[in-house]
Amino acid sequence: MAIKRKTLTRHGREGFKNIRRNGWMSFASMSAVAIMLFVVGAFAFLIVNTNHLIDTIENDVEIRAFFEHDVDASEQESVLEEVESHDSVENVVYRDRDEGLDVFMESMGSDGEVFENLREENPLNDALIIQATDPQMTAAVAEEVNAQSAIESVEYGESILGQLFTVTNYVRILGGALVIGLIFTSVFLISNTIKLTILSRKDEIQIMKLVGATNSFVRFPFFIEGALIGLIGAIIPIAGLTVGYSYLYSFMYDQVPFFTFVEPNPMIWQISGLLLLVSILVGIFGSQMSVRKFLKV
């Protein structure tokens, strides 16, 4: 049976009024929502940034393949082309021994200048700087490049790379598990708090039924009320997290230039939207589940 519009208006109005009528209980529910969302939201930002950090570290992994000293330019060219066409190679840069010395001297800072007299007798090799499409493919790509006869040796930090990937994989799995666990916990806690607010209104529901209200007539205002508790409860943590994160982002941007946080836009809106949606759904779910118990009159 379709609900008449005036009845729908009535339900909406009652939903709002009930928040006010049950002032303290509504406040308790909203606080529970706010606190849990704040924790979940803060954790979500942490996870997103940890992932970002891992990505940054992993993407810094590069292979340096050194040519034999006696390899001529055309042979180097053909190796470069072959490496470039490899499926798992993202990017290759050729760096001759002069550039190599520049980079080395630069890395030594002001002490680097003493190496300038090495330029005539440069002991360094011409090299290819290779990045794999997937950082985890680095070792395999390095092996293949090393197999080329024109290549003297490859370096890619093999000793720490394996450990790095083990650690980053664990961090990702652990982070994911924590987020899921935290979401479940907060869904449980929020819907339980809402249940308590409705538990205290068992008599009210019973009276409605005895006066001839249908189940859906009883349920609807609680539906609105649950959604509102979720909505209002979500506003404060979302506002707090948005402002806090934006501030933290610009602070880090100025103070710690070598590591930037994930840009607030659009990440912050995506997480906020998700929090809001989850909060409203949990509010509705909590209220409907608890009303259901008292409808059998």
Binding site: K6, R10, M208, V211, A213, F217
Partner: peptide, 10 residues
């Protein structure tokens, strides 16, 4: 309330 239940006109 008893009238709202039967969807009486406001």
């Amino acid at each position: 309330f008893a009238l709202e239940v039967i969807e009486e006109e406001p």
